[in-house]
Computed example of a mutant assay.
Amino acid sequence: MKTPSYGELTLNGLWKNNPAIVQLLGLCPLLAVTGSVVNALGLAAATTLVLICSNTAVSIIRNVVSDAVRLPVFVMIIASAVTCTELLMQAFAYELYLILGIFLPLITTNCVILGRADAFASKHAIGPAFYDGLSMGLGFGVVLIVLGALRELLGTGALFADMNLLFGPAAANWKWVLVADYQPFLLAILPPGAFIFTGLLIAGKNLVDRQIKRRQDALRAAPVKGAKRVRVTGTIS
């Protein structure tokens, strides 16, 4: 199997094959946790770390594990990476760990991680597998953070509240209040708001893709600059 270039892996993870708004995988934590930027950042970091570790480990053992036990082994690897990530978060961001709650251990069953392990890491060398995990994690994390920012901003009129939960006491004053005396817009914070904003993000990406395709089609159809028309004359005997 041909290994994609690192540029292709980056473009796939961040845009063309984004796990959240293209593959529509991992929607349960995406919709449940993105009520604020700090929650989204915490889950994005945890998911990216698990993706990198699981992809790398699966790539290392890809030629050793038989097809009969491939998927159970992949799940064990992912569960081990999730456990290590949970322990790190308990040690360095315990309050955020409590807020994220069940959605941290549920990373084990996240279709994004198992899907990349089976579809990519099990078929490619360590370097591309590591980078695929990184790019897919970043793509998923960007959507999480954008969704969390939109919901927090429209829901509370502020951004970056409680960032000290992830970055420590130095981040206690990072909260940015955009509108004083803002009337909270509860729909943005509640689960229906997550569905609405996710749909808008998907629609926005589809619109951008459509515009890019239209421009590419127009460039292909345009005549080459400086080309001369050749008039062919003659007789048929």
Results as ranks from 00 to 15, higher is better:
3 T>L: 01
9 L>K: 00
12 N>D: 15
15 W>K: 01
19 P>C: 02
20 A>C: 05
25 L>H: 04
25 L>Y: 07
26 G>A: 06
27 L>V: 13
36 S>T: 14
45 A>N: 08
47 T>L: 14
47 T>I: 13
54 S>G: 07
55 N>C: 14
56 T>N: 02
57 A>V: 09
57 A>P: 01
60 I>C: 03
61 I>V: 14
66 S>W: 01
66 S>D: 15
67 D>E: 15
68 A>P: 00
69 V>R: 11
71 L>H: 02
74 F>W: 05
75 V>T: 11
75 V>M: 13
77 I>P: 00
77 I>M: 03
82 V>H: 07
82 V>A: 08
82 V>Y: 05
83 T>K: 01
86 E>C: 03
89 M>E: 03
96 L>I: 01
100 L>M: 07
102 I>M: 11
107 I>Q: 12
110 N>C: 08
113 I>A: 05
114 L>R: 00
115 G>P: 02
118 D>N: 13
123 K>T: 11
124 H>L: 09
126 I>E: 02
127 G>C: 10
128 P>W: 10
128 P>A: 02
139 G>T: 02
141 G>A: 07
149 A>H: 00
151 R>K: 00
151 R>L: 04
155 G>K: 06
163 M>K: 04
166 L>V: 03
170 A>F: 05
170 A>V: 15
173 N>I: 02
179 V>K: 04
182 Y>N: 02
184 P>V: 06
187 L>Y: 10
189 I>E: 06
189 I>R: 10
196 I>L: 15
198 T>K: 00
213 K>R: 14
215 R>A: 10
216 Q>L: 12
218 A>L: 09
218 A>F: 01
219 L>H: 10
221 A>N: 14
222 A>M: 09
224 V>P: 06
227 A>E: 12
233 T>K: 10
234 G>W: 01
